[in-house]
Computed example of a mutant assay.
Amino acid sequence: MKLKILTLFPEIIQGFFQSSIMAKAVERGIIDYQVINFREYAADKHRTADSYPYGGGAGMVLKCEPIAAALDAISSSDQSAARRIVYPSPSGTQFTQAKALELSQMDELVFICGRYEGLDQRIIEEYVDDEISVGDYVLSSGEIGSLVIIDAVYRLLDGVINSESLLEESHEDGVLEYPHYTRPEEFRGRTVPPVLLSGHHEKIRKWRRKQGLKKTLRNRPDLLENRKLSKEDEKLLSEIEQEDDHGSD
């Protein structure tokens, strides 16, 4: 997959691609990336990338010309390639695991990192395919929002992470992931649940599923609303509710 990131602050982006799992994905050729400082495409002698908003108001707005020139310069010559231009924005649609999976099917993703009050609307209308919000809050850095999306997407590509690990993660089937434990068996009076030490794979599987459902019910009950549950999940949820009722007596 090709990743191209348009930013005023390349140094924020570079470290991410040079570290940990991403660095290995780049080394293996799974990821090819390019960081573009769109200030370099500004035509005036001061390399101006922002200006005051029409109609007044606080803050500055990123200008059309530098971003448009940068996007035109990196446009793909391969018209058959699946390509999307992404603008992370608090005004966008909610980012989900399903959206990450959709974007992971692309050959190329281009990210526009906003700053200040954001982009001139005409850039969004002319170029942007996906305006995406990573949460109901506001960031000062479009770079951070872009990296959130990139991190969720690239790890889904073949060869980046063990496929078995991906299947058991939170949000893959609408249920949050179960809790994990490792050595030592006892830490500050807290012990590893005995079932995980039993070696009984089926009991471990059911325990993990039940714990995932319990966490989802506690932290994200909305994920279970209007969701068709398996008979096993229905039974496990019934057990959880009975345990909660018993605990409240």
Rank of each mutant, 00 (worst) to 15 (best):
H46P: 00
H46M: 09
T48I: 12
T48F: 06
T48H: 07
A49E: 03
S51E: 15
Y54F: 14
G56Q: 11
G56C: 10
G56R: 13
G57W: 01
A58I: 13
G59W: 14
G59H: 11
M60V: 13
M60N: 05
V61K: 02
K63I: 11
C64A: 15
C64S: 14
A69D: 15
D72K: 12
D72G: 14
A73I: 01
Q79D: 13
Q79S: 15
S80A: 15
A81Y: 06
A81S: 15
R83A: 08
I85Y: 01
I85V: 15
S89L: 09
S89V: 07
G92W: 02
Q94T: 15
F95E: 00
F95M: 09
T96L: 01
Q97E: 12
A98C: 03
A100W: 00
A100C: 03
L101F: 09
Q105Y: 11
Q105M: 12
D107Q: 10
D107F: 10
E108K: 02
E108M: 11
L109W: 00
L109P: 12
V110Q: 01
V110Y: 00
V110K: 01
C113S: 07
G114H: 03
G114V: 02
Y116L: 08
Y116A: 07
E117P: 00
E117N: 05
G118S: 11
L119E: 03
R122T: 10
R122C: 02
I123Q: 01
I124W: 00
E125R: 15
E125C: 03
E131A: 08
V134S: 08
D136S: 09
Y137T: 12
V138H: 02
S140E: 12
G142P: 05
E143A: 13
E143Q: 06
I144Y: 10
